Computed example of a mutant assay.
Amino acid sequence: MPDTETQLAPEAVHRRVDEVRERIGRACERAGRSADEITIVGVSKTFPMQAIVSGVAAGLTHFGENRARALRDRVEERPGRWKGGDVCWHMIGHLQTNKAKFVARHADRFEALDSPRLAEELNKRAAKNDRVLPCFVQVNISGADQKYGLPPEELHDFLDACAKHENLHIDGLMGMASFVDDSETVRSEFARLRTLAETYTGDPANVSLEELSMGMSNDFEVAIEEGSTVVRIGSAIFGPRS
C-alpha cells in the first residue's frame, strides 16, 4: 500500500479523478444523460489538506467532511464559496444539534438534515449568520436501524414543515443504499429516493428538490442510472484510508 504522500500526489489523484469521470460518462450514456448533470463531491474526511490541493488541481471544486469541527478547521484554512473562496464545502455526516453552529457558520451545503429539532436549530443559527443554508434532507432508504435519516413515509410531511424555516433552503434529498453486492437491491433503494422526490406535491418557496445526492465509490454508477445528480466519492479518488 502506498504511503499517504504518494497516494495523494497530484498526478495520482488526477489519474483517479479521470477514471471516475470516465465511469460517470459511461453510466450517463447508459441512462441517456449528460455527464454535465453530475457533481462530484470528493470525500476528503480524515485525509490531510494535500487531498484538497490535489483534488483542486484535478478539477474538483466540491469536498465533503463528516465532522463539524473538522469542517470548521478546513474552511479556516481554505474558505468555501460562502466565504468568498474557490471550493464548496459539504457537511455530509450526521450532525448533533449542539454542533449546528459550526455548520451554519462554515458549510456551503449540509447534506444530512434529518429531524425537526435539527432543522429548527440550523434555521436559528443560519439567521444569526445572516444567510440561507442550502440543505439536503437525508432519507433512510435502506431501512437499516443503524442508518441515520428520516423514514421515507415521514419525508413529505417533514418537507412541508421545513417551509416555515426562512433561513434554510431544501435543494434535494440524500440517501445511502445498503452496502451489499446485490445491485438490484441497491438500484431499488436509489429508485425509491427518486420516486420520493418526484411524488412530492408541496410547493413551498424554499423546497426545490432539484438534486439527488446518492452514490459513493462502491455504487455511484447505479446511482447515476437511477437519477443521482451528486455523487460522494472518497476512496476511488483519494485511495484507501489508513
Rank of each mutant, 00 (worst) to 15 (best):
W89C: 06
V230R: 13
L95Y: 03
Y200R: 04
L196I: 02
E19W: 03
S115R: 12
C88F: 15
P48I: 04
Q138I: 10
R72C: 11
E189M: 10
S44M: 12
T185C: 10
V17Q: 02
S208V: 12
H169G: 11
Q7A: 03
K164P: 01
S235C: 04
M49K: 00
S228P: 05
D86M: 13
E189N: 09
E211N: 13
E153A: 15
N98Q: 13
D203W: 11
M1R: 07
R26T: 15
E210F: 00
L133W: 03
R192H: 13
E221H: 02
T229R: 07
M176I: 15
E19Q: 14
G234D: 06
D160N: 13
P151G: 03
V137W: 01
S242K: 03
H62Y: 04
G32M: 08
E120L: 13
V17M: 08
G93R: 09
V53M: 12
A104G: 08
S208F: 06
E120G: 14
Y148A: 15
V186S: 08
T201H: 14
I141Q: 03
D181R: 14
V41M: 07
A68K: 07
H156E: 11
V13L: 07
P152R: 14
E111K: 12
N123M: 01
T46D: 14
D86E: 15
G227F: 01
M216R: 05
R194Q: 13
C28P: 08
F190P: 02
M91N: 00
M214V: 10
A35Y: 09
K101Y: 12
K99R: 13
F110R: 02
G25Q: 15
G149P: 14
G149N: 02
K99N: 09
E153G: 15
D182V: 04
A100Y: 01
Q96I: 06
K101L: 06
E211L: 11
L193P: 00
R78K: 15
S34D: 10
D145C: 11
N123F: 02
I237Q: 08
R105K: 14
G25I: 02
H90Y: 07
E225G: 07
A104F: 00
T201P: 02
S188G: 02
G64H: 10
V139D: 07
L193F: 05
A51M: 07
L168K: 08
G85S: 10
F63A: 04
M216D: 09
V132P: 13
F47P: 02
K147A: 11
G202L: 00
V207Q: 06
T4C: 13
F47C: 09
E166T: 10
A191C: 07
G85W: 00
